[in-house]
Design a binder for these strands. Structure first.
Lengths: 155, 155
DNA sequence: ACCTCTTAGATGACATGTCAACCAAATGCC
DNA sequence: GGCATTTGGTTGACATGTCATCTAAGAGGT
């Protein structure tokens, strides 16, 4: 592929992209394994429950939940179905809009979340944050925001 | 969570991790959509076929393939089964070790790969590489390698 | 040759994610 | 009120990944 090509991607850049993707994949897998082992939940469970935990007492609508964690509605719905089955969350009748329900943490869900929280934070620190230099943290934060912003606009 | 806690993760660091994860997820989804639209294949298909394409004429063993792209063997096997079904690759009898077969690209596979290559590179450049500053590229490359290295050792 | 141990892969069960189609309540407009 | 449209969610079909288990072929030692 000639260097004059607009879309040309040289070896160093391929390596950058590849390494980045691979790192993220491995990191995610390891975090998932640990979270599963320590608290019996997945990262998906964790993120969703964390949003619920931080949210209002009455719970959240599936839509609002998806908005918060950046998931599309069908993904939220499927995940909720599975989590209801595992007893982590509950669908509660909603007064103001009968099309959907409010989602709330069950006692077991809250327990699993709290149990996982400390270890998960430790793992993220150990496997990721602690391995970054301060300027790398700045660079990654800035780059993530910029790339993410570009994606939303482009769609 | 007190700041003296070893595992303490402050807001800025949570945001860093969250933003990073979200960015990667969105980027991957968008790249997948485009690759699917332009060449009818997934990123998984693409990566696997690219390794085959770069490899020796006779093809590669599933194990070697997995080694190259960093996948575990069962994942490779499942993906191959699906891709054989879609006519992208073929399992060929192996002389030297009858436990497995050599994997080779089919004509259709090669065509799909070549069709996707240019556009995919352009997309990666447009959505990711072109949005990074030179120092961010350096930082991300270095950080990826370090984090990845830490994961392998830790396991 | 024979028996054991290792290794390469395949497979089944199951969790996850995407897309498209569907459904019913809510909303707008006449 | 009555009806079309929008909106919030669910569902089904299907691709993907993980783990545990299984199979059969190599390799080694006697």
């Amino acid at each position: 592929m000639p260097a004059t090509e607009v879309s040309a991607v040289d070896d160093a850049e391929w390596a950058l992209f590849d390494g980045f993707v691979l790192m993220h994949a491995e990191l995610g897998r390891e975090l998932d394994r640990r979270l599963q082992r320590d608290a019996g939940i997945s990262q998906a469970d964790f993120g969703l429950m964390l949003a619920l935990f931080r949210g209002p007492e009455e719970g959240l609508r599936p839509g609002a939940l998806g908005e918060l964690i950046g998931w599309e509605k069908s993904r939220v719905s499927h995940q909720l179905t599975r989590m209801v089955g595992r007893g982590l969350v509950e669908r509660v009748e909603c007064d103001t809009d009968a099309r959907g329900s409010m989602i709330v943490l069950t006692r077991a869900g809250r327990r699993a979340l709290l149990g996982g929280m400390r270890n998960h934070a430790r793992d993220i620190r150990e496997l990721f944050l602690d391995r970054l230099e301060p300027d790398e943290k700045r660079a990654i934060a800035a780059a993530s925001a910029r790339v993410l912003g570009g994606l939303d606009v482009g769609r």
